[in-house]
Computed example of a mutant assay.
Amino acid sequence: MAGCGDLGTEAGLRFAAAGHRVVGWRRSPGKLPAAIEGVAADLSSSELPAVPTDTTAVVVAIAADSPTEDAYRSAYVDGLAHVLDAVLASGATVRRVLFVSSTAVYGDAGGGWIDERTTPEPGGFSGRIIREAEELLYRRLSGTGITPVVLRLGGIYGPGRTRLIDQVRGGTAVFPATSRFTNRIHRDDAAAAIVHLCTMDAVPGPVYIGVDNEPAELGDVLGFLAAELGLPQPASESADASGAASPSGGTSPSGGEPSRGGNKRASNALLRSTGFEFQYPSFREGYRAILAGVGVRHP
């Protein structure tokens, strides 16, 4: 597990529960559960630990330190390159390298459907740099006998990832003035998908979209959460004369970078065709579990 934060830790625990030896690389390995062998590693450095020779799968689950272009490049492109250097120099029996990517590589689809056959058209630097990392993975592993797998995840929510719940509770949530489809996946399902693609008998394809079964209008999700919490429905966003919503939801809180989500409906049909089943098939089951206190937030 190259990058063992919340998602990587959950996937690592699931690998361990299935009987695998799991080694987790992170800057602060002492925070990892005992089931994962923690090793100190800074993926931004070219000096990484040796990959154990009996390694059969490598999962690269990287997160940028800040929402800036430099931080994204350092994490996703440079970090992945350093991991691949270590893998290829190790002589380990690696069969698959799975890179955790994002549906941000698709940009905005105007509410239309996208799947693995859709040409990526990133709308901002985050999607563009993550797409560059995907291409690096395919290029570096070509001809090595190692299968590259890209898992493009939608918005991850779950224990400790409660932004929409917090907005509804805090009274800052706003219904969008125009249609806006969102795509998400519960952290536990994202971790289970990682394990599934790394261990399934059939050779996985080059790319899968990891989202739940139901792309949902943001307003529907906010309304559902308000009802579950017994709170008033959020106020509606106003629209100016040109039809544009105000305030705009198109930039990140840091400014500049367009929203990674865009307006699209992502299909998970290819992932489900491999036999993968979701514990939380829609936002309803997932958010109800969070509100009921189900699950653990990992360090």
Rank of each mutant, 00 (worst) to 15 (best):
R14T: 09
P206G: 10
G295C: 09
A241S: 14
Y76I: 05
R184L: 06
V296W: 14
P206A: 14
A64P: 14
V22H: 00
R187H: 12
Y157V: 07
A63T: 15
R96A: 01
G230V: 03
S90A: 03
A16Q: 06
R161L: 07
H20R: 11
A81M: 05
A177D: 08
F276H: 09
L271N: 06
Q279Y: 06
V83E: 05
R128Y: 05
R161P: 10
L164H: 13
G219S: 15
T93L: 10
S267L: 01
T118C: 03
A133S: 13
G160D: 12
A17S: 14
R288M: 07
T199M: 01
A71W: 08
G293P: 09
G286V: 07
A191T: 05
G255T: 08
V60F: 01
V294R: 13
G262L: 07
E37F: 05
S126H: 15
P215K: 01
S66K: 15
F276E: 07
F278N: 08
S259F: 03
D115R: 02
P258K: 05
G170Y: 11
Y76P: 04
S238F: 12
A216N: 13
V97C: 00
Q279D: 14
I290S: 10
G160R: 12
G262W: 00
E47I: 07
Y72L: 09
G249D: 13
V59C: 06
P258T: 06
A245F: 09
G127K: 02
P29L: 09
R128H: 13
G171R: 10
T144I: 03
A75Q: 08
E214Y: 09
G30L: 13
D188T: 14
A50I: 12
T9C: 02
A133T: 07
G110Q: 01
G3W: 03
G262N: 03
D115M: 04
P52Y: 06
P281M: 04
V195D: 00
A190Q: 09
A35N: 11
